[in-house]
Write a protein that binds this DNA or RNA. Structure first.
Lengths: 139, 139
DNA sequence: TATCAGTTGAGAATTCATATCAAGTGAAGG
DNA sequence: CCTTCACTTGATATGAATTCTCAACTGATA
């Protein structure tokens, strides 16, 4: 019952690389596209399976964000915040620390073991906000 | 072009009531089940439509959380945090404020207009944490 | 070289959510 | 009281994302 011999196949290597090199929080579909640019004929199932493995082993973070459903993947596994533009759907990283004291207090009060957190700030990115203003004054 | 006369039908009333009385962040499917306990034969489309209306009018918050996909709905529309158990998927409320100063600084640095935020803390709820420990010592 | 657990890709199957559309409903005016 | 018409509804079709199934493939090991 030692380690179950996980193989680092070309497909897995490609998924790993694509995620590591992406800082735009790609969806599984986008990862699939990018993987296929490197290795021909990779199946969707393989990419989904590999992403699940990476998430399970803590090498990649899974993000649920934006107006629509698709999950997104983040190579930054440290707790951090995401700025989500509700107009264009773009997601960018941000750093907002939660107060450690408040977290400790929370843990004590709720007996919930906090492993990490994700702060999602939603609003408008600069370009979309500008566009909004333009539209508003045009009316 | 005055108010488009939104009718408060029995179906809508039921959805409204169900959400207002639920503090477990039900998914749309769960809302549908609960609504059907009150009003027979309600269609799924009606519940989805009504939930969308409620979200749009700001009476209900939409949550994207948990291991699986389905959206969840929250009758608590004030900015608050959610403790998400990564083992059982349970979601409970928590109160963790973001530092206003940090937010202001962020807005300035990124020119991102923040409309609101959602803090998701993930980890294990007390029962699941206990189960983990039990399993671990059993090995 | 035979074996076998681990992997893969195609396609089917699921799940969640939204779109379509004909039929139902009720308020307002005649 | 009856007609009209905008608003609703529910069945069903549709669509997107994800997972499942399974036969074929691969490579380390005996």
């Amino acid at each position: 019952m030692s380690s179950p011999a996980l193989r680092l196949t070309p497909q897995r290597r490609a998924v790993l690389d694509v995620v590591a090199e992406s800082d735009d929080h790609p969806t599984a579909g986008q990862v699939l596209d990018r993987v296929r640019e490197r290795v021909e004929g990779v199946g969707a199932a393989t990419v989904y399976r590999t992403l699940a493995l990476l998430v399970e082993s803590g090498q990649v973070a899974e993000l649920r964000v934006g107006e629509r459903q698709a999950l997104r993947y983040d190579q930054n596994i440290h707790s951090h915040a995401h700025l989500v533009c509700t107009a264009c759907g773009q997601v960018q990283d941000a750093y907002v620390q939660l107060d450690a004291g408040a977290l400790a207090e929370l843990t004590e009060k709720t007996s919930f073991t906090v492993a990490g957190y994700d702060v999602q700030l939603h609003g408008r990115c600069a370009p979309c906000a500008a566009q909004d203003n333009a539209k508003e004054s045009a009316q």
